[in-house]
């Protein structure tokens, strides 16, 4: 089990940050991914392997509205 934005999520072996974003349907382009307090570079999303028990924060940066 991992925690994503304070919610439990099933962990599977080999899971990457990109997989997490897909499962959560986090498609917004202005996000910052922080795994256990460490910011993950955008170009590492597809290669960064998540570990069981990780705490992930996906911070959506847009405050929206015109």
């Amino acid at each position: 089990m991992i925690k994503v934005n304070n919610e439990d999520m099933d962990f599977t072996d080999g899971m990457t940050v990109e997989d997490v974003l897909k499962i959560k349907k986090y498609s917004h382009p202005m996000i910052t991914v922080i795994v256990n307090g460490k910011v993950i570079p955008v170009d590492s999303y597809s290669t960064y392997k998540v570990k069981d028990g990780d705490v992930i924060n996906v911070i959506h940066m847009m405050s929206g509205g015109c």
């Binding site: 304070n6 924060n57 911070i59 959506h60 405050s63 929206g64 509205g65 015109c66």
Partner: peptide, 14 residues
């Protein structure tokens, strides 16, 4: 929404 748009901060980012 031009006063406040807080949905991501609140609902998604918690």
């Amino acid at each position: 929404h031009d006063e406040a748009w807080l949905i991501f901060m609140d609902m998604v980012n918690k």
